[in-house]
Simulated assay, not measured.
Amino acid sequence: MLLGSAGGGVFYLLHLPLPWMMGAMTFTTVAAVSGVRIAMMPRLRMVFVAILGIMLGSAFTPQIIDHLALWSISFLWLGLYVVAATFLVRLYYIRFAGYDSVTAYFAAAPGGLSEMILAGSAFGGDEARISLAHGARILVAVFVLSFGYRWLGGYTPSGTSLAATTQGVAAVDLLWLTGAGIIGFFGARLLRLPAYALVGPMIVSAILHVLGWTTSRPPAELVAIAQIVVGSMIGARFTGLPLRLVVRGILLAIGATAILLLLAAAFGLVVDATANQRFASALLAFAPGGLAEMSLIALALGVDAAYVSSHHVVRIFMIVVAAPLVFRLFRRQG
């Protein structure tokens, strides 16, 4: 956390995009690949990921109900994207990395990192390579999209963040938000939902905001710390891995991420034309990053965070449910 905070502070002073997450991610990644043994306390991580989920839920408003019909069209395109992305990146890892079919399949499936590692190792895949593929993909995607939107797309941090000041949140609203975090966290864990620490609080917070029971958001100070935690989590994943393996994994991830981003851009154009959704939002919704990371970029740039986060939740559910079933089907046919 000290490394992540220092990195976030440096990036903030340099006016770089998404500074608290990007700075934390950069400093901890450099430290990890340099041999420093760093790790994130699981309980601390869960608390601040839940806060991020509450914040994402606050992006859902009663007006969103009017957009659900168009969102359903976008969800259908998302399903096709997941199939195409898994197929193309699997071929990439087999042809260019020499991965076996099991490792290549679970390294390619753009789902939750921990879920793909567990499923891949259960089927005999290389756990280290699967973990590195997903961790490096998120690292590359965050860098490319954050700087790309800032420098190429002309987007600047939004002046209307989904965070409030500490003084701007009433006590009763703090109780609502705290309740959303606690009920969402334990309820989602009980139901064994993927990414439950983020998804559960987000769903409960979204329900409260759609019903109009509260319009408040978490304090900006907590949101900044949550960004540091998320960024530090990315860097900590590379701890203990040989530098040569990490460098090769990142180089391979650059190629895989390029394929996924080009495919996401193509589907983004289709969604723009068929679902009346801006390309900038669709690209982030289909982009090959993590739920927390892509949602934070959407929040920072003032892009439709509810649309982006909901699509990444649906994508994770698609992959977590379908990936093992599809793999079993193909293995039986083979």
Score class of each variant (00 low, 15 high):
3 L>P: 01
8 G>N: 03
13 L>P: 06
15 H>R: 14
20 W>D: 04
23 G>E: 05
26 T>E: 00
27 F>C: 11
28 T>E: 10
32 A>Y: 05
37 R>Y: 05
41 M>A: 14
48 F>R: 10
51 I>V: 15
52 L>Y: 08
54 I>V: 15
57 G>P: 11
67 H>M: 11
70 L>K: 15
79 G>D: 05
81 Y>S: 04
96 F>K: 11
96 F>R: 12
98 G>R: 01
104 A>D: 08
104 A>S: 14
120 G>K: 00
124 G>F: 07
129 R>W: 00
136 A>P: 13
137 R>K: 14
139 L>C: 08
142 V>T: 09
150 R>W: 11
150 R>M: 13
153 G>E: 10
156 T>L: 15
158 S>C: 10
159 G>T: 14
164 A>K: 03
166 T>D: 05
167 Q>C: 00
167 Q>T: 07
170 A>C: 02
171 A>E: 12
171 A>R: 06
172 V>F: 10
190 L>Q: 12
196 Y>K: 01
199 V>T: 06
200 G>S: 03
203 I>A: 15
205 S>A: 13
207 I>C: 08
212 G>K: 08
229 V>T: 03
231 G>P: 00
232 S>P: 03
235 G>N: 02
239 T>G: 10
240 G>V: 09
245 L>C: 04
253 A>Q: 05
259 I>H: 02
259 I>Q: 03
264 A>P: 09
270 V>T: 14
273 A>V: 02
277 Q>G: 01
283 L>C: 05
286 F>Q: 03
305 A>S: 12
307 Y>L: 11
315 R>E: 08
316 I>V: 15
317 F>K: 04
318 M>G: 06
318 M>W: 09
324 P>I: 08
325 L>S: 13
